[in-house]
Simulated assay, not measured.
Amino acid sequence: MSAKGFFISFEGIDGSGKSTQTKLLKQALETAGHDVILTREPGGSPGAEEIRALVLQGDPDRWSAQTEILLFTAARRDHLERTIQPALDAGKVVICDRFADSTRMYQGLSRGDLRATVDKLHDLMIGVEPDLTLLIDMDPAEGLSRALSRNTVEERFEDFGEDLQAAMRKGFLSLAQEFSDRFVVIDGAQPVALVAQDILAATQKRTG
């Protein structure tokens, strides 16, 4: 790991196991002696968590796609300023459950052809990409089943159904090709322990 820290994001459809795997990676890296910050999006800072409550609860059509892009970008900016960048500047490893790639997919593609808008706002207000993005890939139907079985209140995007899940899987795999320098695709259909092994191996390969 360099003195400037190392930024890892996790992406994937709902129910792909990102939250479990972020925690397992954090434990593994801490065991290896690294100082690790685990965070999430939307959220990860007080202001961003307030915005999270606005965008993840309520009816699926509560916000337009354009409004969602602005809300997520505002949350990400606060998260970057207050959590991510200070940790990187201190030489820590930052593990984030979702980052800008989720916005590129959910708001930029699934809810209108707004990818260019997402990218322009990202370049203007964020300007940071992860050093490594781990995409946990799995069957859309299985992912949705897992997500709905959690009985969480933040089901607004899960309520869009399997069609959205399938579109997201396709979109994430497309992003993995577009940004092949930082993406690693992990087979999420494996047992949890094997997924964790593949993730740790990919992380160690990139960080040395």
Rank of each mutant, 00 (worst) to 15 (best):
M1W: 09
M1F: 13
S2L: 15
F6S: 10
F7C: 12
S9Y: 03
F10E: 01
G12R: 01
D14F: 03
D14G: 05
D14N: 08
S16E: 05
G17N: 09
S19G: 09
T20K: 14
Q21P: 05
T22K: 06
L24H: 09
Q27G: 13
A28E: 06
A28I: 03
L29T: 01
E30F: 05
E30W: 11
G33Y: 07
H34K: 14
D35H: 13
D35G: 13
T39E: 11
T39W: 02
R40S: 12
G43D: 10
G44W: 08
S45A: 15
P46R: 12
I51V: 14
I51E: 03
A53Q: 14
A53K: 15
A53M: 09
L54W: 14
D61E: 13
W63A: 01
A65W: 07
Q66E: 15
Q66W: 08
Q66N: 15
L70N: 05
L71T: 04
L71G: 02
L71E: 03
F72M: 12
F72G: 01
A74N: 01
R77W: 01
D78G: 02
D78A: 15
H79C: 12
R82C: 06
I84N: 07
D89C: 13
D89Q: 15
G91F: 10
K92W: 06
V93I: 15
V94E: 09
V94I: 14
C96W: 10
D97K: 07
D97E: 05
R98H: 12
F99A: 07
A100P: 00
A100N: 10
D101R: 00
T103P: 05
Y106T: 03
G108L: 02
G112H: 10
D113H: 08
D113C: 10
A116N: 08
V118M: 04
L124T: 15
M125K: 11
G127W: 04
L135V: 01
D137A: 01
M138Y: 12
D139C: 13
P140A: 14
P140Y: 10
A141T: 12
E142F: 09
G143N: 05
R146M: 06
L148A: 02
N151Q: 12
T152W: 07
F157A: 04
D159T: 08
F160C: 00
G161A: 12
E162S: 10
D163I: 07
A166G: 12
R169W: 10
R169G: 04
K170I: 13
F172W: 09
S174M: 05
L175S: 00
L175Q: 00
A176I: 00
Q177A: 08
F179R: 00
R182L: 05
D187Q: 06
G188K: 05
P191D: 14
P191V: 09
V192R: 14
L194P: 07
A196M: 04
D198V: 05
D198P: 01
T203V: 04
T203Y: 02
K205D: 12
R206Y: 11
G208C: 11
G208W: 11
